Amino acid sequence: MNAITEVKTDINAQIIEAFNSRHATKIFDPERKVSDTDFETILEAARLSPTSFGNEPFRILMIQSPDKRELFREFSWGANGMMNGSTGQLGTASHFGIILAATGELMRAGSDYLQDHYRQVKQLPEEVIEIFNGAYGKFQAEDHKITSDREITDWSGKQAYIVLANMMTTGALMGIDSCPIEGFDMERTTQTLAEHFGVDTAKWKPAVMFAFGHRAKDPEFPKTRRTMQDTVAWF
């Protein structure tokens, strides 16, 4: 076995070990904080994540203040510990946040927001922007038929999940635990974001919450998944 093969084999083993170790952590050790440097790496993985058409229809809201976290406690059953008799991820996570999904106001084909994104962020020439507008317009109207505000926001949410998956995988490879959280009241969360965080909820809606830190204890039960044969079909 040559050096390149050895390195590749080692990387393969590290990836599988990280995924086997990763679990949806419900209670973190509040005394063990993720370092700023490590979490910056996790956020950089989020920033560099792929999104459909490269439109980046997401933003990340980090909520580190205990008082700010408490604003979500009453209606975030997936993060408030009600299912395990603890203060939950809201009370124990080193880092807690929400990924916001862009609404139709921003992500409808031809929007001013997207034209600015293509020019300022992607730095595309005008002739390429014209091609993007046509292709993305067809994608929305004909290919996937996502034209209503709800449909476009849900599409943005799909991109947010790509981002969160990359954040969690990065964390797992670094020995940092995480939990994706969907157990919250969408309407009350949206209202709280508008009233207490200055979020323009006509443009941005909550997609998913997340928590990072170090587990307080190992899972009680082993990881279970379907077999590869039941998961993947080859043709």
Rank of each mutant, 00 (worst) to 15 (best):
A211Y: 00
P66C: 11
Q64M: 12
D36T: 12
K158R: 09
W234T: 12
D36A: 13
R119S: 11
Q229H: 13
S178P: 04
H144Q: 15
T192N: 01
Y161L: 14
S52H: 05
N55V: 15
G213T: 00
H214Y: 15
L71S: 04
P206W: 05
T9G: 15
T25Q: 03
A141H: 04
K68H: 13
M1R: 13
W77I: 08
Q229I: 13
R188P: 00
M107W: 13
I129Y: 08
W234S: 10
V232A: 08
K217M: 14
K203Q: 08
R22C: 06
Q89P: 01
G175Y: 01
A160T: 15
F235T: 10
R215P: 02
E142W: 03
G134C: 08
G97M: 07
T224H: 04
T170P: 01
P30M: 09
F132P: 01
K205V: 07
K158Q: 09
H117T: 10
H95L: 02
K203T: 00
Y113R: 06
R47G: 01
D149E: 08
R59F: 12
M168G: 05
E126F: 03
T51A: 08
A233Q: 12
I63E: 03
A207C: 14
A102M: 11
K223C: 02
F212D: 00
R225K: 09
V232S: 07
I162E: 05
T190K: 04
R150V: 10
D230Q: 14
K223W: 02
G91P: 02
I16Y: 13
D36N: 12
A79M: 03
D112E: 12
T192M: 05
D200Q: 00
D112I: 06
G81I: 01
P222M: 03
R73I: 03
P180R: 04
M62F: 07
V208A: 12
F28Y: 14
D230K: 14
L48I: 07
F53E: 02
V121M: 10
A135S: 11
G198T: 08
G171P: 05
R225P: 00
P206T: 05
A93C: 03
K223A: 06
F96T: 08
M228Q: 11
V208M: 14
A3N: 13
S65Y: 08
F96Y: 13
F72V: 07
D116I: 11
E56P: 12
Q120G: 06
R215A: 15
Q159D: 12
H117S: 12
I60V: 15
E6G: 11
A207V: 10
G85V: 07
G157K: 12
E195P: 06
L106N: 09
L43V: 01
F19A: 07
K33P: 04
T170L: 01
T103N: 06
G97C: 04
L124K: 06
I60M: 11
F39S: 01
K122T: 03
H117G: 08
Q64H: 13
S86H: 09
Q14T: 09
G175W: 05
I176P: 02
G157M: 13
